[in-house]
Design a protein around this nucleic acid. Sequence first.
DNA 1: GTCTATACGAAGATAGAC
DNA 2: GTCTATCTTCGTATAGAC
Lengths: 177, 177
Amino acid sequence: MVASAAELVRRNGIAGTGFRDVVEHSGTPRGSISHHFPGGKRQMVSEAVRLSGAHAATIMSHAEQDGPAAALAEICNVFRRSLVATDYAAGCPVGAVAQEGWREPELREAASEVFDEWRRILRGLMRERGWSEERAEDMADLAVCAFEGALLMCRIDRSTAPLDHVEHLLGPMLEAG
Amino acid sequence: MVASAAELVRRNGIAGTGFRDVVEHSGTPRGSISHHFPGGKRQMVSEAVRLSGAHAATIMSHAEQDGPAAALAEICNVFRRSLVATDYAAGCPVGAVAQEGWREPELREAASEVFDEWRRILRGLMRERGWSEERAEDMADLAVCAFEGALLMCRIDRSTAPLDHVEHLLGPMLEAG
DNA sequence: GTCTATACGAAGATAGAC
DNA sequence: GTCTATCTTCGTATAGAC
């Protein structure tokens, strides 16, 4: 059910995703919403963001023995496939929450923790490549910003070009300390 | 009225911005909505995006005699001031539409044209610095992606650091061809 | 636990008076 | 042109039956 929520939010946004859609998409019983999510929609979206964020972090970590550029390439590949497979409907659920749900402290907190983890992973990989702590932090910021922005722009362009460009330009930069 | 819509959309998103809020914010008469916007909310948001996009393009163009890094710095400065002045409520209206309104062809088209103009401006400035057409295109993509992503992240972090990092890391890259 | 029905509020669109 | 009132839709939350 949380996975369904994440999938719908990344496509239609928070406001565009109702409980109705989630129960339909997940096939779960309609009457158990308030039982599983006493915190209402906020709680559901919050859990969806954390789930997606952890999933992405796992993907990046899988490539961590190959360095920061490989980690970036890996996560770009996964999202690029999603974009193409859904005809550019599937963006990033964390970005959606960052745009629509930042006023809700619970959602802002969830998105914040996800972004922090992503940056922490990239920072660690760059440190291993000899970057200074400060430069690694700045570059990790740039990488996550560019990644999130690229997902936005790919949907508008109906093309994976922005994501491709980010990956190919930023990858080498992350390697050279 | 369009300016009010743009201001409200960049803060609260499309779904979070009702006609009610717009007439209140702009002080315009409530009964003339459908007269000025026969196309409904879509039309209003579409015009708001184009207005904001053109405004940002003008800002970048003001610094164009000083090169691409100066243009980037100028637009970053303007949005950084907005972020701080509104306690991180004011993001980018074009980004909001890219996230929430991409399904509406009219809105997607408007956002697409705005992004294209921004990239065209940066590409032109980089060409003057001796970049090849292809590299200039890729770097312009990266710059706009990073800028949009930074505005997202600044709100979540409640800090201008992501935007600062993007500006300081990307600026020099745009200069050196 | 799961389900149905409903209350409550919000928002967009529309019609008609002045 | 401007305004008020209303219609309709939709989504969340809640209460109560099985």
